[in-house]
């Protein structure tokens, strides 16, 4: 659906996007994840034709954005960062205005506006000025504007930024619903958002892609170790060293220690089952297990490792 090839954007001396390439499939929700300033917004602005790339190409449905910008814009619904709207307009006027701009045919114009009001739950605010609405409603109005021409592709730049937890859940479930029939590209710096809504994730850091995979693959790519979290009560100073005497244990990390209570992680190779051994070992030492659980690596861990690794590479 979308093909990005060697895309680069320079702002003066600053390289905001550095030679990135990726393919977006025909359906599903794709997350573009990265810290603030990673180049997410710039990438999306180039895909939507808002600004031209310094180098590289963007294809949407096999059309090149440099030659077919207007045609491509008809296929894309774009929610810019901060969800800007014309604050002095009322909701209905805004939707009609956007519908006109998106060339919605006059035969279906009224129906589309009504559909959007229903889909995004705007019935109670239709006559109100947009600047009187809560942030959550403003976001819905923006989303309604972005999808009013029933585009094949929705590009949403930080769609839940600045919303309260309930509003975030609402917007996410709206996005999930829309993702069943459309291709959705969501940028975010919130890892939980990607975990909550996306099927596929592209991680960008300092203008470069550091990972481009399905969510499961990205999460499991760093899972060659099993990590067990322990809370142990033990009257010894050498607890950490004692663990190292077990040959299968790759390493241990002390997380916290209060009086004689240790909180630690024990890591070992993924293909082994070491839990019975660890249990027997602790029992023999006469220590008390207060807690023992397998630690699931979150996307956050993966993300931190990916971006830290990149940091080391640059330092070298």
């Amino acid at each position: 659906m979308i093909k990005v090839k060697d895309l680069t954007k320079d702002y003066g001396n600053l390289r905001a996007v550095d030679n990135i390439s990726f393919d977006i499939p025909d359906s599903g929700i794709i997350g573009i994840l990265g810290p603030n300033g990673a180049g997410k917004t710039t990438t999306l602005q180039m895909i939507t034709g808002f600004m031209p790339p310094t180098e590289g190409e963007v294809y949407v449905d096999n059309l090149n954005i440099a030659q077919n910008s207007l045609e491509i814009r008809k296929k894309i619904g774009y929610l810019p960062e901060g969800s800007p709207t014309y604050a002095d307009m009322n909701v209905v006027d805004f939707l009609y205005f956007i519908a006109h701009l998106k060339n919605v045919h006059s035969d279906i114009l009224d129906k589309r506006v009504k559909d959007m009001i229903r889909t995004y739950g705007l019935e109670q605010v239709v006559g109100k000025e947009i600047n009187q609405l809560s942030k959550g409603f403003k976001q819905r109005v923006s989303l309604a504007g972005a999808s009013i021409h029933n585009p094949e592709i929705l590009i949403l730049d930080e769609p839940t930024n600045g919303l309260d937890p309930n509003q975030i859940v609402e917007i996410r479930s709206l996005i999930k619903e829309l993702g069943q029939e459309k291709t959705i590209l969501v940028s975010t710096h919130i890892l939980r958002e990607v975990e909550a809504v996306c099927d596929h994730v592209i991680i960008i850091d300092k203008g470069k892609i550091v990972a481009d995979n399905s969510l499961e693959e990205v999460q499991s790519s760093f899972h060659n170790l099993t990590q067990i979290y322990f809370e142990i009560q033990a009257d010894t100073d050498r607890l950490m060293d004692e663990f190292k005497t077990i040959p299968e244990v790759k390493n241990t990390q002390l997380y916290d220690k209060e009086a004689n209570i240790y909180k630690l992680y024990v890591n070992y190779a993924k293909d082994k089952e070491l839990r019975p051994t660890l249990y027997d070992f602790i029992k023999k030492k006469d220590w008390v297990i207060l807690e023992m659980r397998r630690h699931q690596q979150t996307l956050e861990d993966v993300f931190r490792r990916l971006t830290e690794k990149d940091q080391e590479d640059t330092n070298e």
Partner: peptide, 11 residues
């Protein structure tokens, strides 16, 4: 206000 992005990404 950023609405330039709305208008410039419309056809």
């Amino acid at each position: 206000s950023g609405t330039i992005e709305l208008i410039c990404t419309s056809p």
